[in-house]
Design a protein around this nucleic acid. Structure first.
Lengths: 349, 349
DNA sequence: ATGAAAGCGCTAACAC
DNA sequence: GTGTTAGCGCTTTCAT
């Protein structure tokens, strides 16, 4: 690898001048500038990022801490984060906590185990002189980890923060659910089953709120018996469908496509035809949704938008756009709407 | 950030000694060693990777160049690469070429466009003093890019190399296809339709070879009319099923689950029942396969194994395990078997 | 067993 | 406009 110094020698100028030309700092005569560019081209010289980083204390590298890249939501967000960063000349390193792979859902609140995997990652990030961090959650939740002495710019993606210094970018669960349930009501359904995740899950709470709001606005009574709490699994959808059908629902809203798959399973067992005998709606618009029969009406997650926005926020912070101009007491939350995808699983009652 | 020097001062020793203790180089008295460790703990000192990298010329960082992380095959491989590397204390940075996102399938052979996205990435990798590279393809193909003056250790993952210096890790397409077709034959099928990707695609060629081998070994004639070349899309599966059904096949082997989805579509239109009137097998065991009805018999890709093996090969090279001990003229190819997943879409004839 | 000095490749401050 | 000097944080001879 040819170095700055070597380029300088070949041109009979100082290292400074070459550095200036490359970074467009001080003014340099056209002549020497040309000569230097020429030699750079000839030798294929590339600045050594490591040396630059050591000197400038900026590596133009950001880290993504992903709770689990195997969650179907992660890759699109990561991809758009990378795209956004690369455009502005930032590198991205991804750290994968593999939280769900290791402990499925059991690590919630297990602070010790959580930190046993997070801390080495943070240590590494600090050692590597990373400029900023995007924390990428597997499911929406409130992340409390970075409140303390963590003084790298950071933004929460697909999760909420507690600190006013950490903005978060999330989907608008409530509104999206409200829209879907309103649609179901418009199609004539009044007894609508709701299959959620765990009760203390943010997606679940907010989507339930949207459901209730839609009922309320249409003058419909909210029957708590029509709510079933599952665990996002296909099996939970199956069980939920069973429980709900006993309560004479005409439509079932499963808040993940995966769970809705279980609803289809149960309905098939009972020889009930989806989109005819009973209407079904999902959430996520995962790739599977298009392979259901009938194809599933569901809600598409704006994952790429969320990733891009997170990256933009972080880069703005790094470039000191408007710094922490006016932080209030509350963390700033950017909510992105989802998009309803109408297919064939919902019919008029 | 506290530095080595500061730790040294606090301990009244030289930087050298601290460095020695941390890296276990020279022998140091137990006493000073303890004192130093103590201070390191107190101050939370972490070596600066950048400075280390500059000095030692090893960054303990490898790069993954992914053709497209949005391909469903990529995340599992990346994940296991990361897992393997982290275990050995290596960082990984992922670069995403987004080849399929940009140009779907049209970039094959478009050297100029391909290089316009690859070259900046390589430049960046060189600048960042990366120790080694894993090239992660979206589909199996022969990569010719790195033959020339690229002198970083590199391994091909999910693709073939041309150079004897670059090992590749791939799936055993031929054998896996052979097994599936043998199974179909065992179930009594003799006229088996084959829906492939493009004719010049390696997966397609090798899986077709496996098909032919199974036919041959069972004394069955291979009818070329039973082969349909598609483009991996659901639509292609639909068209393929139409063409093949006219030729009176009793089973259809679609070499991607996605295409097989199109086969199901067509069969449904014709009111033919999969797993009864006609048998269907897929390939990939993508998540959708389990949501087909009936559930799809298919072949699972050993993606995590392939990723892990690639990483191991690269790390071995880096640690100079047995160097390029005995390179022949041919690139070394590691082939991994896939696993047949029998579900409900194939029945006895 | 420990330390002094040099230097990895680069840029910032300042001088000329 | 261009060069000199110093130093980012670390490891590596080579002395002692």
């Amino acid at each position: 690898m040819v170095t700055l110094k070597e380029v300088a020698e070949r041109c009979n100028v100082s290292a400074t001048t070459v550095s200036n030309v490359i970074n467009g700092k001080a003014k340099t005569s056209e002549e020497t500038k040309n000569r230097i560019m020429q030699v750079i081209k000839e030798t294929g010289y590339k600045p050594n990022t490591i040396a630059q980083g050591l000197r400038v204390k900026k590596t133009r590298t950001i880290a993504v801490i992903a709770e689990d890249i195997a969650q179907f939501t992660s890759p699109p967000m990561i991809e758009s984060i990378m795209e956004t960063c690369e455009k502005k000349g930032y590198r991205v390193v991804v750290h994968n906590l593999r939280l769900y792979d290791r402990w499925s859902d059991t690590w919630y609140g297990q602070e010790d185990e959580y930190h046993s995997v997070l801390d080495p990652v943070i240590k590494d990030i600090l050692s590597a002189q990373i400029d900023g961090v995007i924390y990428l959650a597997g499911h929406a939740r409130i992340i409390k980890t970075f409140n303390a002495g963590f003084n790298l710019p950071i933004v929460m993606c697909y999760a909420y923060s507690e600190s006013p210094h950490i903005p978060s970018v999330v989907i608008d669960d409530e509104k999206s659910s409200y829209e879907m349930v309103s649609y179901l009501i418009k199609m004539g359904h009044e007894r609508i089953g709701f299959i959620g995740g765990r009760m203390d899950n943010i997606h679940t709470a907010q989507r339930l709120m949207g459901y209730q709001k839609a009922m309320y606005e249409n003058g419909l009574l909210f029957d708590p018996k029509l709510v079933y709490y599952g665990d996002w699994s296909r099996k939970a959808g199956h069980e939920g469908a069973k429980a709900l059908l006993e309560r004479n629902v005409t439509a079932i809203f499963g808040i993940s496509d995966r769970m809705t798959g279980g609803v289809y399973d149960y309905l098939e067992e009972k020889e009930l035809i989806v989109g005819k005998d009973i209407s079904v709606a999902g959430f996520d618009n995962e790739s599977i949704a298009e392979f259901f029969r009938p194809k599933l009406t569901t809600t598409e997650l704006p994952l790429r938008e969320i990733g891009a926005k997170s990256a933009e926020l972080l880069l703005d912070k790094l470039e000191g756009a408007n710094g922490d101009s006016q932080i209030g007491d509350e963390p700033k939350v950017y909510k992105y709407p989802c998009k309803m995808i109408i297919r064939r699983s919902v019919s008029e009652k």
